[in-house]
Nucleic acid binder design. Structure first.
Ligand code: MN
Ligand code: MN
Ligand code: ZN
Ligand code: ZN
Lengths: 146, 146
DNA sequence: TTGTATTTGCAATTGGGTTGCAATAGCAAC
DNA sequence: GTTGCTATTGCAACCCAATTGCAAATACAA
């Protein structure tokens, strides 16, 4: 499969081992049109060899650590994961849009960043500019919703 | 106390009973300069008669239900509560600093906001400018840490 | 006061997420 | 292809914020 090759390369580029769990999870995230919870992913992968609960948590956190996925706590305080759009370029460089309906995260490439002024003694490691709202797919007229 | 009168009236307007828990919690939220977790509030109220854990959860949810407070899941997926704005500056109007060590949130009053440009069909309900890092209390020299 | 619906306190439970550790399996070097 | 090393996985136990069920207490209207 073409996408599998693509993903394998991404993983190897990071000096990491290419494992079925990583391949399947990242492929799934890339094909999903909304942020997926751990439960969503477990369910989606339970045909074929099931992935262990804990392994899945660890794979997801590893993907986030590597810049290949985004992790957001939704309104019900459940983590939702989505594939990073640019294949792992630094996401500190741009802003993000989080859809509060479907949980999907979109990269906003051209949003200007403001340089924050911090109180004495504070040190910033990461600046996050997050816009919340409803994405195009979820932002339908009220009368058309069910 | 002036504020207590004020809050009592708010509660009665909603046809609800005025109880010590509701008075104390809402007064605390109104005086807080950041979103407070259940744990924060429990701690803040433990001088005087302590409020039961579950009662506190129920009072907080009731305040949210009544539109008197806001409830958001933070990055560590813990709910944080804040008083609904009553004419003062809302928290959306400025940036926030989140300490990745202690989880506290600080308001950065004078950070300029950039207006984000969104793709077609997207609608923003809330813009969050969040700076992550180490606060003054946690930002001690590496060699002094344990 | 008294009656009663609302609110509270306590114990038990849920559920998403994490940790410790032994077993497994990528993959680089032979 | 075999071997060896170490990253990764699987399992059981655990954590902890939050919720639920139910009986006891209490705000407040009558
Ligand atoms: Mn991004
Ligand atoms: Mn604020
Ligand atoms: Zn959406
Ligand atoms: Zn701190």
């Amino acid at each position: 499969m073409k996408d599998t090759q693509d993903i394998s390369r991404l993983l190897r580029e990071r000096g990491a081992r290419v494992t079925p769990a990583r391949l399947r999870v990242l492929a799934l995230l890339r094909s999903a049109e909304r942020g997926l919870s751990h439960h969503d992913i477990e369910k989606a992968l339970d045909d074929g060899t099931p992935v262990d609960r804990v392994t899945l948590y660890r794979v997801l956190d590893w993907l986030v650590e590597q810049g290949l996925a985004h992790k957001v706590a939704d309104e019900q305080r459940v983590f939702r994961f989505s594939a990073a759009s640019t294949g792992g370029e630094p996401h500190q460089a741009h802003a993000h849009f989080v859809c509060d309906d479907c949980g999907k995260v979109f990269c906003l490439e051209d949003t200007p960043r403001a340089a924050p002024r911090l109180p004495a003694g504070f040190a910033s490691t990461q600046v996050e500019f997050e816009v919340h709202g409803h994405c195009a797919a979820c932002n339908v007229p009220v009368e058309a919703r069910r």
